[in-house]
Design a protein around this nucleic acid. Sequence first.
RNA 1: GGUCGGUUGGCCGAGUGGUCAGGCAGAGGUCUGCAAAACCUCGUACGGCGGUUCGACUCCGCCACCGACCUCCA
Length: 501
Amino acid sequence: MPLFEQYPLSLYNSMAREKQLFEPLAPPFVGLYTCGPTVYSEPHLGHARGLITWDLVFRYLRHLGYRVRYVRNITDVGHLEDEVTDAGEDKITKKARLERLEPMEVVQQYTVAYRKAAADLNALSPSIEPTASGHVPEQIQAIKNILSNGYAYERDGSVYFNLARYAASHPYGKLSGKVLDDLIAGSRQTEGLNQKQSPHDFALWKKASPEHIMRWDSPWGQGFPGWHIECSAMSTKYLGETFDLHGGGMDLLFPHHEAEIAQNVGCCGNQGVRYWIHHNMLTIEGQKMARSLGNFISIEQVFSGNHPLLEQAYSPMTVRFFTLQSHYRSPVDFSNEGLQAAEKSYRRLMNAAAALDKLEYRAGAFDAELERQIQEACHTLYRELSDDFNTPRALAVLFELSSRIQDFRSGNKVLGGISADAFAQLQQNFKAVLFDVFGLLPETQAQTSKLDGVMDMLIRMRTEARASKDFAASDRIRDELLAIGIQLKDGKEGTTFSVEG
RNA sequence: GGUCGGUUGGCCGAGUGGUCAGGCAGAGGUCUGCAAAACCUCGUACGGCGGUUCGACUCCGCCACCGACCUCCA
């Protein structure tokens, strides 16, 4: 029996605004699409949250036994920054001009940076990572379909989605809770500066001005695809007209995902997505992260500690652990205090995992209550994760199990008190959830075998000095190593060391 | 202004109509030549005012405060 039958997954569907039992279209296959980055600048902490959230979803679905195709796009065709006044310049073009690069050089640089950040955070590669620029023909085809279905109109080389026409027969705004009439009433639209029939009609295809560098041929002349069409085109291409899961940040609810739905209907006759899931945003010490507020932190800066707001560097696994401590639908507040606490908590779990590996089972006096408790916890781990990916609760269970593991290690409780089966289950579930699902890794220690050799020697010298009560020498070894960033840990079974950072 | 969400102990962060979150910090302890590390044990909480209820932190109403989105944003 696959795990997904044993622990059926329920998740919060943003469209229904309630938790629903997840029933894939064609189990065990699952299609998952998430909106990836626009690659015009360094990946930042917000990207980290998205990466970690969807990686956990991907990992857990796979762990449950689903065969998942995970598609995450790269937006490498610039979005216009100011469409309203038509004075807009797209982000990638602007960056290219400022840095005197080809637009594709900008795209390349930040795509590589994004993938590097993902790898550092131990986020698995998606099954397919399509780029918008590589799918212009598909986007043109989708626009053609929308046009021929009567949901769009052409004006002077640009194509716009006809929202009034669409909203007359479809519930536009349902996902984000917007009412089209309110939007129109509240819009600050300058007269006569654009060709749209209605201010909220959005571009499917945009005519390229003479100086616009990124341009492609189309039935409507040279131009580039609009803001939202890539996701409709690429999700349809790789996951089909209807697929299981679509994710993204809550900030994409409107207008991006709302537009996607309208396009899907306009193109294929149905909205395409069965479950919408959205993760919450990230704040920096209680404030929204924004360049204008000066609290913008890139992923690389977190790892290096090179930012005025950071008291120290934080390892990728600390960031990952910290993120998963909160539920994905709650906001995460990034603070030094929080990160430092996470660093320690994370170490505790890793200590327990290491201790678990060293335990050797021998039958002993049976402790029925302990047996029940451990088995129950092993199940709870999955029940929590299957309850809308409740990582904080699953984590609490991991800590509970950590204490039991330490009880066994220290002799506080006898390992033989539980059955060999229960012990095997403990080992398997604890490590599976910690490593495979949470995607945490043992702390990388910058140590080579040569360093090991040197440390062995130093530890031996210190042990000898201590044996002969030459504490001046032994303390000197310990303190000077600490100054270098290597900490000695005296334990019952001897001395070990860890390298800082 | 509109829409939605939140307000939990020193800090972070789950959750529930009536015995438990969990982590960090703090206190005590084990270990140790001392220390560090590691491990064990232990407090304190549910924004305000009403209501429903045998019973509310949990449900309902009002108020206050905070935030997100409404414009590109993960």
